[in-house]
Simulated scan of single mutants.
Amino acid sequence: MSVAIHMPSDDSISSSHKYSVILPTYNERKNLPVIVWLLARTFTAHSLAWEIIIVDDASPDGTQEIARQLQTVYGENHIILKPRAGKLGLGTAYIHGLNFCTGDFVIIMDADFSHHPKFIPQFIKLQQTYNLDIVTGTRYRSDSSPALSEGVTPGGVYGWDLKRKLVSRGANFLADTVLDPGVSDLTGSFRLYRIAALRHIISLTLSKGYVFQMEMMVRARALGYTVGEIPITFVDRIYGESKLGADEIVGYAKGVWALFTGV
């Protein structure tokens, strides 16, 4: 079930849990060192146990070599490189990375700065306060989003042109109207999962492309898992190109219908 909840005003966190980050990459040579540094700094500042599982799909730009260098800096216990033979889809990247997670909770996010690690402490605080199974970042505000407490700003999107904003809004509106999932941002991919919940949901998820994130949320609700939302600011990638194409958009529409008739 999804729940409308208030973000605690106290942003301090302490936890005996370990947090595993699954970071799918393809041609992220320039982005990877900085996002890893930001993640390491965030976890260290809050004295949290952590690891980053880098799932690279045979990037031709040398992403894997950068990952190996990062292992020498942060240690192989913190940076785990688990490459694949080629581009096999976002959903299967999470399934692959999940096999190597040793944490109690799993964070999924992009490696291109679209998702800033500064929001992770808010995710963890919200999860701890309400004992949630899932916390998801939302770029949008709606009636189903958690009420904002003082000092917490609404989500937003920066760096997108009008066409891409309309596609994203339209995709969420379609899914919200047809499926009534109880969360305001179905296509987002910045989330915190209790690892047992993630393993359960992902074992039932059939989609592999753009619709994958939506199906995960719809199935989470159908299975009775508790979900909270944190407003985030989404910034378009700094280096490289978006991987969203026309085929993914068509696949998304088909996925909405499949979930409507099958879940």
Rank of each mutant, 00 (worst) to 15 (best):
H115T: 03
D176Q: 10
D185K: 02
H116V: 00
M109D: 00
V152Q: 09
P117S: 00
P117V: 04
L126M: 12
V157I: 14
T187V: 15
D104F: 03
V106P: 02
P154R: 12
I120D: 01
T129N: 12
Y158Q: 10
T187M: 10
R169K: 12
G170H: 07
P146N: 14
P154H: 06
S168P: 01
S142M: 09
V183C: 09
L148D: 07
L186Y: 06
Q127V: 00
V167G: 02
A175I: 00
D112I: 03
P146T: 08
R191N: 15
T153Q: 14
L186T: 08
D180V: 09
F100T: 08
G103K: 02
I108T: 11
T187W: 11
G103H: 05
N99A: 11
H96S: 12
N172V: 13
L166H: 11
L174K: 00
L192F: 02
L98A: 03
L98H: 03
H115D: 12
L126T: 11
Y140I: 15
I120P: 02
K118F: 10
R169T: 06
R191K: 15
F123N: 01
I124V: 08
G156C: 05
T187L: 13
T187H: 15
R169F: 09
K125S: 11
H116D: 14
D185I: 05
T138F: 01
L174M: 08
W160D: 13
R164L: 05
W160L: 15
L186R: 03
F173V: 15
T136N: 07
S144F: 14
